[in-house]
Amino acid sequence: MFLMMGLIAVGCVLLITVYLLISGVPAICEIGPINFLFGTKWASTAAEPKYGILPFVLTSIYGTAGAILLGVPIGFMSAVYLSKLASPRLKSVMQSAVSLLAGIPSVVYGLVGMLVLVPGIRKLFNVPDGASLFAAIIVLAIMILPSIIKMSVTALDAVPKEYEDASLALGARPIETYFRVSVPAAKSGIAAAVVLGVGRAIGEAMAVMMVAGNVPNMPDSLFQSVRFLTTAVSSEMAYSSGLQRQALFSIALVLFVFIMLINAVLNFLLKREKE
């Protein structure tokens, strides 16, 4: 009986994979893999519908890259400070704060982004609409911050004290020690934190839906209204039918493939960290 329960997780993964394949592959075949993946125009409700998802793929990649570019340095630096320099009191206060940040529902991020970030960007950069790739990048950067900080702190805390003592005894200053000895020693853990952040950012739907503007443009500029892979699925699902609906499942399949790749990398890094 317990074996059955243990196998449920495996069953769920198989079920998800099979269902996504069954519902996602037909549309890809019908549209043609090249047209689907590299088509630059998405017009699912036009008289002559076009199903090219390159704009979504690129938006997701740019958006994630931007979030990593903004979020990782801040998260990494905070993690080093919290793990090595902060007083125990500050560390515990900040850790609760970071947990809170992690626990805030994504729709709340979306709401605040909609009312603070979007008008802010419009005024600051003098663009007609603030709902843009840039707004999504900032929201995503904030949302991945807690995962990055938490995981990096755990990795840095696990660095053997002897390494640092040895470096200090050789005359290195504390800060030099932390960045040149502790950080390299914790590098797979920190890399795993970054990969986890990538996974979070690429999979986030609701917050992005509320701030990115949701128009299927190619992401040519930071201030363009764009649609991510995740939001492409959810924004048309409610009223879709036929090939359009199938194409949405194909988008989900593409997203799933991305996520599985990221998971594989994450698992590899975590295994190395354990060793």
Binding site: A9, V10, C12, V13, L15, I16, Y19, L20, G199, I202, G203, E204, A205, T230, V233, S234, M237, F249, A252, L255, F256, I259, M260, I262, N263, L266, N267
Partner: peptide
């Protein structure tokens, strides 16, 4: 490994499935 994978799948995909 299956449990790890499950925890990495984004919620929108859960929604679809």
């Amino acid at each position: 490994y299956a449990a790890e994978t499950l925890s990495g799948i984004p919620s929108i995909i859960y929604g679809l499935v």
